[in-house]
Amino acid sequence: MERCGTVTAAARSLHLTPSAVSQQVRQLGKELGVTLLEPQGRRVRLSAAARSLLAHADAIEERWRRAEAELHDVGADGPSGTLRLAGFPTAVCTLLSPAAVRLRTEAPRLTVRLREADPLESFDLIFAGEADVAVVEATRDAPPLTDTRFDQRALLDDPFDLVVSTDHELGAEPEASLPDLAAETWILGMPGSPCREHVLTACSRAGFTPEVTHQAQDWSLVGALVGDGHGIALVPRSVRLPGQEGIVRVRLAEAPPARRFLTLTARGAREHPAVRAALTVLDDLAGANAATE
């Protein structure tokens, strides 16, 4: 309920009825001799005792994962078992899929499974124990770094480049200055998307509000619209635009906006041999990507 917000949402995530969840929580409170749910208008909320209990539960869960990691520590043969990786499409293409290829050689006894998931869904998967490692983008809607259920650490910063059509006057230039783009027509992501917020913030700092002519979420579609001359766009450097003829990437003269990638695990799970192997490979890949920029 702390994570889901309401008893109904918590019940849905557990595949139970709201009444069953409420009954179990009240029964637990009865056994402990404390009140765990208290009324708040027409709903209920967690009491101070319930929040204290959750903090202890998170600490116990972390200690258990650390103990499990020690018990599964391995020698020269490397880790074994199944490792579940999750991430949004760009993270899968540029980091998680290459990581799985390397682990196939470096940890042959390990079976790696990949799953596409947007950042907020990745938190749910980690919390539910349905993924072991995720690569997420830092967003305002995500749980804070101080959330004791998760271990979030910076992996890499992904700067944005200007993308224009080949016949655009900037297509032959080595770089472009963002303030000089105020009169252009723009292609932006959908409202509420993190990348759209990055672009709007960068344009605001450059002293203008972009004229948005088209909106698209899929990067291949953004590339196609730019190539057809519908406008310009800022696209993260890690995004591949395969098969998009008629477009050119141009670096920005000033410090570009950037999105931050984070590795995400459950608190206490990083020392598990399989998880540790994956994080080591991801760090290497992130370093290699940064070195080529």
Rank of each mutant, 00 (worst) to 15 (best):
E61H: 05
S97L: 12
C93R: 13
I60F: 03
E121R: 15
L85T: 08
S52H: 12
R63T: 04
D77V: 09
R104Y: 02
L54P: 00
V112E: 11
L85V: 08
A49Y: 12
I60R: 11
P108Y: 10
A76Y: 01
E68Q: 14
L83I: 10
I60N: 04
L114T: 11
T111P: 00
D118R: 13
L114F: 10
S97G: 03
L54F: 06
T90C: 02
A100D: 05
A67N: 00
L71N: 04
T90H: 03
R109Q: 08
P79L: 06
S80Y: 03
L71H: 07
W64D: 04
A100P: 01
P108Q: 06
R102C: 00
L54K: 02
D73I: 02
R104Q: 04
A91L: 05
A100I: 07
L83S: 06
E70Y: 07
A100F: 06
T90P: 00
A59V: 01
G81C: 03
R113Y: 05
E116N: 14
L96E: 12
G87T: 10
S122D: 15
F123P: 10
A67R: 04
L110A: 04
E61A: 14
T105K: 02
P79Q: 11
D124C: 10
H72S: 10
P89S: 07
G81Q: 04
E70M: 10
R65E: 07
S52I: 03
A99Q: 11
P79R: 06
L125P: 11
F88N: 09
V74L: 07
L103N: 06
E121D: 14
A117N: 13
A50T: 04
A67M: 01
L103V: 08
F123V: 05
S80I: 00
A55R: 02
S97H: 14
A59E: 06
L53A: 09
L96V: 12
L96A: 11
C93V: 06
S97V: 06
H56L: 01
P119D: 15
F123A: 09
R66F: 00
A99E: 12
R104K: 03
A99L: 13
C93P: 00
E62Q: 15
A69H: 06
S122C: 15
R109S: 06
D77Q: 14
L114Y: 09
